[in-house]
Nucleic acid binder design. Sequence first.
DNA 1: AGCACGCCGACT
DNA 2: GTCGGCGTGCTC
Length: 841
Amino acid sequence: MENQANTLFTSFDADEVTFFADLILPIPVPKLFTYRIPRGMADLVKIGARVIVPFGKKNSRVLTAIVARLHNSPPANYQARYVTELLDEYPLVNSYQLELFRWMAEYYMCCVGEVMNVALPSGLKISSQSKVQFNPDFDYPELLTEHEEILLTELKKQPALTYDELSRLAGEGVNIAALIKSLVGKKAVIVFEEIREKYVPKMIRKIRLHPNYEEREQLLVLLQRLEKLPKQQEVVMRYLRHVPVQHNPALNQKGLDKTILNQDDELSQSSLQTLVKNAVFETFEVIQPRFADTSAPQGEIRLTEHQQRAAEQIMARFDQQNIVLFHGITGSGKTEVYIHLIQQALAGGSQVLYLLPEIALTTQIVVRLQRVFGDKMGIYHSKFSDNERVEVWKGVVSGQYQFVVGVRSAVFLPFDNLGLVIVDEEHETSYKQHDPAPRYHARDVALMMAHWQQAKVLLGSATPSLETYYQAKQGRYGLVELHHRFGDATLPNILLIDTKQEKRQKTMKNEFSSALLDALEMNLERKEQSILFQNRRGYSPYMQCEDCDWTAECPNCAVSLTYHQRDAELRCHYCGHKEAVPRLCPTCGSTKVKTIGFGTEKLEDQLQVYFPSSRVLRMDLDTTRAKDAYGQIIREFESGSVDMLVGTQMITKGLDFDNVSLVGIFDADRLIHFPDFRATERSFQMLTQVSGRAGRRAGRQGTVLIQTANPHQSILQKIIQNDYKGLYEEEIQERQDFNYPPFSRLIKLTVRHPDKAISQQAAERLCAELTDALGSTRVLGPEQPLVERIRNQFLFDILIKIEREKVNIKAVKAYIQDRINDILTDKGLRQVSIVIDVDCL
DNA sequence: AGCACGCCGACT
DNA sequence: GTCGGCGTGCTC
């Protein structure tokens, strides 16, 4: 408490020292907001800490904000409001992160608030619920209406109720907001905000032997006494079996999970209760770590000769360069090399971040890492709950987690002493965030963060992105290659199946070539597993009437609806619209409504027909939506009870099955001929990655069958020969000729409006203005994207290509932003929205 | 983003 | 005449 002198002193210069904070608010507004800091808080607030502030007209909202700047210059044009509460004694966000936020907002052309929104797990933002309380000073009950009186009687009974609770009490059809408003006006109730942290650590109840019985003699006495109480004795014995107190009294401190003691029988529960009552046992609570301690850490991993050499080369490169590309073919055992490097970095006392694409993270890799690093390792995954993510965040701050494996958003964790960042499967497009801004690329953000913290970055891939390989070729990144498969397994033998020819010879059975069917058959006989890849989910992508050519289309998007047999419905893969399958053609009434094309669901179906006694599993978005479905499918396939796995690109990543010796690939042509300048690169990556699932263990060479209508395409030849360099040389030339990345930076602007004409008009004007300033070689479009309407918005794309050298990219972005703002504030173009995607993929 | 304010149609 | 629909503009 303040003493007299202190109070006098602070009131003396109250006007001189008024503090203000510029705050990052979690809203998409491109500026900071200035608030006053209450006197008592002034000494405690630090940059990077969170505060609670009132926001909006009539304090309609309460937000969690981050302190970005502290100063004492009052804003000129308005009266700053007060910060309500300080949430952190120490900064939650460190200075590197604040720098990152600012950099991202500028680079990706978004607001800092948007960056804050993706960076912080929502458990670190606050939930506020308005509460309503009876005002004890109220004594004009004659003013109340009947409804109000009922409500007030309820409120008198309880200390406070939330809006939600009140509306439930009032029943249906009552406008609770209006009612409360009126009550507030009459001063009958008080409304206040109850603020609380969303994050609640998970507690588990444990029990332990009362310290009195830790000594052997006392314990024996106890057991003797319980001789006549067999149930209780059994409970104590059970405890001692789990916790050998006599051998090691210290173990008793840690206690035992209550649920372990009363596992099966309910009787032990009451016995335990009695024992607790008689002070034989005591209960206590501990915060449960979200990731169970793994058993004995298995520290040593042995590298093969090739792995050892790769690790040494990487270390040597790191002496000269901060970024190294590790190009190791599929199945070469990159993970072991990573583990080795991570151990080195941790031993040096610095933090390590290991980024993986989303789907690869749920798999075996994490288990392997956990076996090595135990509870020193944090896991940051989008499938985890908020609480779990908050725990990892706090664990990084506290130093508990020196090492984190995580997805894209793990780059936002509060590291301050990074020594090594690994970006595994560096080429993966899922590192780029697509939908809400900021549309960032986690690899590039990681590179930036590592640069600031002088950490080394290892980019790993069997099929590096052209951008990264180009940098390595230019000498800007170090390059280390590993061309030997682990344990001398050989690369699979890749064969091209000419579907045109098989069709001519009428040996195709639906989507299956006879070559593929034969191979599957043989694999079944050998009891080896097969993987089938088709990058399209659902049963079939079209439904069409044979008589009148009607096709099922989404009412909101310009796409056909996909038929899903399991749920007997048509679905839009863009907006989620669903509808029943028509029995008759809606236009002509014909019964000949057929499905066209095929997805994973149809393949699964047909496999079951051709191989009735085999077990087939399907892995795609539809079968993995449930909580642990993904892990379950993997475990089931791993167990060997399943013969074939059909899947979308989900199966291409990080799966490591010993017994898979055959991979079948459908519709490779659709992948290759996708209208996009990256299609060739993508196809190579995807097909090489799937192929890599075959024959990962020495013993037998795996086989890959690619079905194609044109086996002579040069890219297929490159894939067969695993000729990454050949592909690179050919592709990079094209990129240079047409000034695409890595020779330029791309910024895509997507103009959207429910009215096609307005959308087009806005896009054309924007495009014209940009072309004027930047030149027609740098601005492409506007053009309608492949799907020209999504969720009832008509889209027009403008693509801006800016060369990497000799251009002030910041100025260009500022100019683009200005032109966009012009459009958005134009009264004639109301409701137009523009999506900015920097470094679009 | 989300919320208040404000201006037009279909209801007591 | 009012309730409530959505379009518009602002938020320290």
